[in-house]
Measured scan of single mutants.
Amino acid sequence: MKVIFLKDVKGKGKKGEIKNVADGYANNFLFKQGLAIEATPANLKALE
């Protein structure tokens, strides 16, 4: 799953980066902790 990092995550990505991560990692950790959002077309456009 492609995500946009909202904060730096050690060993995974930095704020503003768009990366592929495992679905479970994104859903169970990144999204719940507010560290990333899904890289949907709307979210990508808002990032610009």
Rank of each mutant, 00 (worst) to 15 (best):
G13H: 13
K19I: 11
Y25F: 12
L47Y: 15
V21H: 02
T40C: 06
P41Q: 11
K2Q: 13
G16F: 09
G34K: 10
V3C: 03
F29I: 13
K32C: 09
M1N: 03
N28M: 10
N27R: 15
V3I: 08
N28V: 08
Y25T: 06
K19Y: 08
G11F: 07
I37T: 07
A39N: 01
V21M: 07
A22M: 10
A42C: 06
N27D: 08
K10F: 14
Y25E: 09
T40A: 03
G13D: 03
L6Q: 03
N20R: 13
A36I: 08
K45V: 11
K45N: 09
V9W: 03
F5D: 00
A26G: 06
Y25G: 05
V9S: 02
I37R: 04
L44H: 04
L30R: 00
Q33N: 15
E17S: 06
L30W: 05
L35E: 03
A36K: 00
A36G: 04
I37Q: 06
K15Y: 07
N27H: 14
K10V: 13
G24T: 15
K45C: 13
E38P: 14
L6G: 00
L30G: 01
F31W: 01
V3W: 01
E17Y: 02
E48R: 07
P41C: 11
N20C: 14
I37Y: 03
P41N: 09
Y25S: 05
M1S: 06
I37D: 01
V3H: 00
A39Q: 02
L30E: 03
F31K: 06
K15I: 12
G24F: 14
F31N: 03
L44Q: 07
E48N: 13
M1V: 14
G34M: 05
K14D: 06
E38T: 06
I4C: 00
K15E: 07
G11N: 12
G24D: 15
N20F: 15
K19Q: 10
K14M: 11
K45I: 12
A39I: 03
K10P: 15
K12Y: 14
A46G: 09
P41K: 11
K2V: 13
N27Y: 14
K15T: 08
G24Q: 13
K12H: 15
E48D: 11
F29H: 10
N43A: 11
K14R: 12
G16H: 07
G11W: 08
F5E: 06
N27Q: 13
A46C: 10
I18V: 13
L6C: 08
N28D: 14
A46D: 11
L6P: 01
L35Q: 03
F31M: 06
N43E: 05
N28K: 11
G24H: 14
N28E: 14
G16V: 01
T40V: 04
A46Q: 12
E38Q: 09
D23F: 15
G16Q: 02
N43C: 05
K12N: 10
K2C: 13
N28I: 08
F29Y: 14
K45F: 08
K45Y: 11
A26H: 02
A39D: 01
A42M: 09
D23R: 15
K19H: 10
E38H: 08
K15M: 10
L47W: 14
I37A: 07
K7L: 11
E38D: 04
E48P: 09
G16C: 07
A39W: 10
E48Y: 13
L30K: 01
D8I: 02
Q33I: 09
A26R: 04
A46F: 12
M1Q: 04
L35N: 03
K45M: 13
Y25N: 05
K15N: 03
D23I: 15
N27T: 14
K2T: 14
F29M: 07
T40P: 02
K15P: 05
A26S: 03
E48L: 14
D8C: 05
N20Y: 15
I4S: 00
G24V: 13
D23M: 15
A39G: 05
K12G: 13
A46W: 15
K10N: 11
L6A: 00
G16D: 07
K15D: 02
K14S: 11
K12S: 13
